[in-house]
Amino acid sequence: MESVFAVVVGILYATGLYLMVRRSIVKTIFGLALLGNGANLLIFTVGRLSAGRPPYVPIGALEPLPPVADPLPQALILTAIVIGFGVQAFALVLIKQVFQTVGSDDVDEMTTTDRIADDGGQG
């Protein structure tokens, strides 16, 4: 089971990174989203996969019967998903605004402030 997850995580990272090296900022944001999901799935995988063993304490017992799934990675992922959701929502608004101001979604067009300007540039 772990190996399947490992391959999926690898594919998510590879796709995400590939999209991020493209020039279109729309693809960059999609790449970021995939990278975030890859990281979440990675935490899930390295936190041990134990199927069908919820960490509940049975009635009458003081502790759950081992082996149980570790709930902490899931809590971490949940937090990371919420944060990622907020950040990606902001990124989407940002690229819309960038597209409207710059008039292009090509990162190579977004270099006006990087030049060592003698024509005034941005000042």
């Binding site: 991020m20 970021l32 990278l35 975030g36 979440n40 990675l42 936190g47 971490l76 950040v87």
Partner: peptide, 19 residues
Amino acid sequence: VLNLIASALFLAAVGILYG
């Protein structure tokens, strides 16, 4: 974009360290 990449790496590192 650059800071989000850093965050994704940080998160992955935290996850693996927990594992």
